[in-house]
Design a protein around this nucleic acid. Structure first.
Lengths: 227, 227
DNA sequence: CGGGGTATTGAGACAAATCAACCTTGGTGG
DNA sequence: CCACCAAGGTTGATTTGTCTCAATACCCCG
């Protein structure tokens, strides 16, 4: 058990890149593992922000729901991703599991101390925080400036680059149409029609509702791009 | 000149709250003042990210333009705000002046070192970074889930809370209709009609194109809210 | 008192939302 | 093994909201 908690388990997270096992031990000492079923809630909106998380396996969805019931999906997390930044001392979004997931949890206070004591971690923390901001800005651009089918390209392209796995042209869509719609600021019907359009235009082929292949990488990136 | 660069000048930025003048001196030593005319460009998209900035007076607009020419306004900055986070080592957005502005500039490397040496600054840096992320998420919610007139409420409410000045109900819109449109993911015509609707519904009164008064605070916040 | 940029207003076109029907798939029990 | 069902996804018809294009009004500055 204690053995399990050595640096081995950290291996795949960007956060801990470039560190030796000894250097990681202080973090290993404060971390706990958490195992979550599909559709379970890892973080609830308005909960006090006491912990940070890294995702070991599975997939997460970050979402915010307003009092009026409208939901905005903020992002998806894949293995290696870091979760838990907040603007206050409460979470302003929820995190739910799309698949069975393994997480590492770190008490916020202690984690920040440990990070402070190591220059590489400090740098990584900054990079990751800024990376998340960058992703939010990309999504902002997509929602503000793009049509339905372009937004869908944005999502497919993003999954393509972030989802683990070797095959660069075969994409697994682990989330439901409703999740996609709420991520892109559309309705499920419009998402469905966007899929149909991309298929008709020869950009993708649809193997099943949750499995697509990229046929025209060029066109996809073009429509997905925010630069 | 050197006298001018003491902690006095930092006084109004959230970033430096809770610090004594001596503690601020190392930062004062590396900072430079910059004076910019309206419409001038403070940061150009794709420039190497070498500096951080705090805004002393005036107002800034952050924007991102894609190769296809579409522009997304990412945010507005008011005195006391901090500017310069990036996800890579290049700026992925431009910063232009809406008004004549005074900035403080800090070389990135040295600034980070100085921040590292002071726990309060470290905490402030985190808070500010996360605050910017939080703002981006609010905007994301507005673009994804709201109608034109609700998005406009979102902007008005935001300016109301962030723009300096005492009068809580009188709002100065320092940006053009085009800027507002590109911020909210709309066209200028739709923005104009949204203003008209809010006026008709008695939520605001329009004193001039760049000056509005809030009549129904309740309704405004309701429509603006992302929670 | 012009004149150019900026904002508003109107009419028609178009994209996305809504409402409704239908299809697919995966699981269950007879 | 197949009939059935429920949930999720697709497709079609209609409505609504926003964009586009065009005309008009406003306002700051010379």
């Amino acid at each position: 058990m204690s053995q399990e908690k050595t640096a081995e388990t950290f291996f795949h997270s960007k956060f801990f890149r470039g560190l030796t096992n000894e250097e990681l031990q202080p973090l290993a000492d404060i971390c706990q593992r958490k195992h979550l079923k599909p559709h379970s809630v890892a973080i609830r909106q308005n909960d006090p922000a006491t912990h940070f998380y890294t995702l070991i396996s599975g997939a997460l969805m970050l979402e915010r729901t307003s009092r009026s019931g409208r939901r905005q999906v903020i992002g998806f997390s894949f293995p290696g991703d870091f979760v838990g930044f907040t603007s206050g001392d409460e979470f302003d979004y929820s995190v739910v599991c799309l698949q069975e997931s393994h997480l590492q949890t770190f008490p916020q206070q202690k984690f920040l101390e440990a990070v402070d004591n190591h220059p590489i971690l400090k740098k990584n923390a900054r990079n990751i925080g800024n990376g998340i901001l960058g992703q939010a800005l990309d999504q902002l651009f997509a929602l503000g400036q793009k049509k339905a089918h372009e937004r869908l390209c944005f999502l497919i392209d993003q999954i393509n680059h972030r989802q683990p796995g070797t095959d660069r042209s075969s994409i697994e869509l682990i989330m439901s149409r409703q999740d996609i719609a709420d991520y892109l600021g559309l309705t499920i019907e419009t998402v469905s029609r966007a899929f149909a359009k991309l298929k008709k235009d020869g950009v993708i082929s649809i193997e099943s509702a949750h499995q697509v292949k990229i046929l025209d990488d060029e066109a996809l990136e073009q429509m997905a791009s925010a630069h």
